[in-house]
Amino acid sequence: MTENIALTEAVYYILLSLYEPMHGYGIMQNVEQLSKGRVRLAAGTLYGAISTLLEKGWIKALPGEKNSRKKEYLITQQGKDAVEHEIMRLRELVANGEIITGGGAE
């Protein structure tokens, strides 16, 4: 990936959640748990993000059983690349921040 993009917090946490297959509501709960309650994804925002990620091919919908109403999603290789790229970007942000501020809050 050559494009230098910053993921939104919502997208970053959705992608992290989807290293395991998960349905929409599961993502909401997982993100809240991962962030210890700090990030709460609203249903409309999550739906929009999932649609965009599917379009970009960063996640895919799993072929579920016909009876099950809940669709499950999983991250693709392209999505994993984006996450890894983002982690590198975040490292750089934190490192520079710590150098200049002298370590940040205790």
Binding site: T8, A10, R40, L41, A42, A43, G44, T45, G48
Partner: peptide, 13 residues
Amino acid sequence: AFDLFSDLDSRID
């Protein structure tokens, strides 16, 4: 909690 939008982008939309 019930919110439809949790970021600015979706509210802008």
